[in-house]
Computed example of a mutant assay.
Amino acid sequence: EKLKEMGLIEFENEGKNAKCWVIRGDNNEDDKVIVRSNGTATYIAKDIPYAAWKLGLLDDPFYYQKYDANQPNSKTLWQTSLNNDAATPQNFTAQKVITVIDSRQERLQKIITTLMEKFNSIPDSYIHLGYESVTLSSDTAKTLGLETDGKQAQMSGRKGVYVSADSVCELLKQKITEETKKRHPEMEDSKIEKIAQSVSIGTLRYEMIKQDLDKIITFDLAKSLSLEG
């Protein structure tokens, strides 16, 4: 409703987007449908209030309660709840929001960034940090049980083509444990366990951040575990 009041979206009366609410495209860009002719909201229509909520531009619909687990840094972890019984008021809004999403959503994020600038008086309060898509090498995809016909696998949550960080870390940990035992058979298992845990997490982090943001990230288990050089 706020978008309508501010004249940021328009109702289309004709053409392929007839009876839809749209955001007009800049220059030669196509208009972006926000609400379809049947009244259903598109993907970006849900991202707009989500971004506004992060910046505190909308009333917070959630209640919060402590998550029942101890954090390594001893800080309290909060979880959202729709139940206000024993809920504790919290304020998690921010003056600056950095959204990390791959560059395939660059245009959608550009629209959201523009809208947040119109809603919020703080400049650069919403920033899209884009990166190229993440792929798995053909060998790694095969190791993880994905059928790719010998090609790289581009991960996509919507298509169900993805692997969890936990599964990758576990594979890395197993390989590091095996290699460490070969090189240091005298080492205690508890120490090997600690080393494997640290190296597996560090390896995954490095493989994800070593590339420039404008280059495709290809994760390869064998290369990431190379202990030579």
Rank of each mutant, 00 (worst) to 15 (best):
K223A: 09
W21I: 13
I34D: 00
W53F: 08
T114V: 12
G56P: 05
L144K: 03
T40R: 06
S74H: 13
D60F: 00
S133M: 12
K16Q: 11
F11E: 14
S167V: 15
N38H: 07
K151Q: 09
Y131E: 04
A87M: 03
S74D: 11
R158I: 14
A87K: 00
L129H: 10
E188P: 00
G145V: 14
L108I: 13
E188I: 00
R205C: 12
G56A: 06
A69F: 05
E132I: 10
S103L: 11
D59F: 02
M155S: 06
I98W: 13
S190T: 07
K110S: 04
D189C: 04
L144V: 04
E178P: 01
G15H: 03
R36M: 05
Q79L: 07
K173S: 14
S190H: 05
D212F: 06
Q211L: 06
D149W: 05
L172M: 13
G7E: 13
T99R: 11
T80I: 10
L204C: 02
K16R: 11
R24N: 07
E1R: 11
A222K: 14
G150H: 01
I101L: 12
Y126G: 01
A153L: 14
Q90Y: 00
M6C: 10
I122M: 14
I9E: 03
D31V: 08
S137V: 11
